[in-house]
């Protein structure tokens, strides 16, 4: 177990006890949110800055709502980036943020390690809201919370993570968290989208979706970016959907009560069929969004207490 960190930069390095504590706290916020109450004194007087170097309405809004429900002053900064001056912007921004006495800093960046670099330079507690192809820790926490609410416990569950694992920070964080919590994790996708070294994280690899889904409790789909096709990693969207898109037929290979997840935004008809995505019984996709707010409230709360995670 690593010493308590004043930042949340990655799932890597978190102890299962820390993960459980965060999920328990998030659970209480999920109940609070459903009750319609707020705890606006929790972060009253604190400043939360959403620093997004990459567009993401969904994640930014989730953090914004989480901060506001806890009473923080929330400011959104979208930093227009050109490929040339990204780095300078990053460190210049760090100096600016220090001058503003920001308490909590949520960072989204297209470069792996950018939040960690920023964390070395700012006084605020840094929360990684997704960096390059590295990690997206709050996504993994919200996924775990969603699963836990439906299955009671994470340990022992069979989770299939399907799609573009190679370029997915969501996949890395989820694998690390779910393996740490005792799940049996499989990754499913074409070899061009699965890094060979992924087995080092304790997962099994499947290139046939039906075999990969067989007996799974949870089917977690990943977003396939258009760019992957232009770079030739998969030949076409329709070929991808044919072999790796989640439809009723493939889902039938999983457990009869298997649940479907997707971090969003979805490419309907590419990695997931609409009727599966919108299935009120099997799909947890909307609940994931709801749990996202609760998890982010828990992370902001925990980090603002000063003792770290």
């Amino acid at each position: 177990m690593q010493p308590a960190s004043r930042h949340l930069l990655a799932i890597q390095g978190l102890h299962p006890r820390q993960i459980t504590a965060l999920l328990d706290l998030a659970e209480s916020y999920a109940l609070l949110n459903r009750s319609g109450k707020t705890q606006r004194d929790r972060l009253r007087g604190r400043t939360l800055i959403n620093l997004f170097f990459e567009d993401s309405t969904r994640t930014r809004t989730s953090f914004e709502l989480a901060g506001k429900r806890l009473g923080a002053d929330v400011i959104n900064m979208s930093v227009a980036t050109s490929s040339v001056n990204k780095g300078e912007t990053l460190l210049d921004t760090a100096a600016t943020l220090n001058a503003m006495h920001c308490d909590l800093l949520v960072v989204r960046h297209d470069q792996s390690g950018a939040p960690a670099l920023l964390a070395q330079k700012v006084d605020a507690a840094v929360i990684n809201a997704g960096d390059g192809t590295h990690e997206h820790p709050t996504q993994a926490l919200l996924d775990a919370l969603t699963i836990r609410r439906h299955r009671g416990e994470l340990a022992g569950l069979v989770v299939a993570i399907c799609g573009d694992v190679a370029h997915s920070r969501v996949a890395r964080s989820n694998i690390l968290l779910l393996v740490a919590m005792g799940c049996s994790v499989r990754v499913v996708g074409p070899p061009t989208l699965i890094p060979g070294a992924i087995t080092a994280l304790g997962v099994s690899v499947h290139h046939d979706m039906r075999a990969g889904l067989a007996g799974a409790d949870i089917v977690m789909m990943l977003r396939l970016q258009r760019e992957r096709m232009t770079r030739g990693l998969v030949p076409s969207a329709r070929e991808y959907f044919r072999f790796f898109g989640l439809d009723r037929d493939k889902l039938a290979y999983a457990k009869p009560d298997a649940l479907v997840m997707h971090p969003g935004p979805m490419n309907r008809g590419v990695e997931i069929a609409s009727d599966v995505a919108d299935d009120p019984v099997r799909s947890l996709i909307r609940e994931q969004v709801e749990m996202g707010v609760a998890v982010r409230m828990a992370v902001l709360d925990a980090l603002s207490r000063g003792g770290g995670l």
């Binding site: 590295h134 920070r169 890395r172 890094p195 070294a197 080092a200 994280l201």
Partner: peptide, 12 residues
């Protein structure tokens, strides 16, 4: 270099 280390760090 391709491998576990680059994969964990999310580096090309």
């Amino acid at each position: 270099t391709d491998g576990e280390w680059a994969m964990r760090l999310g580096l090309p």
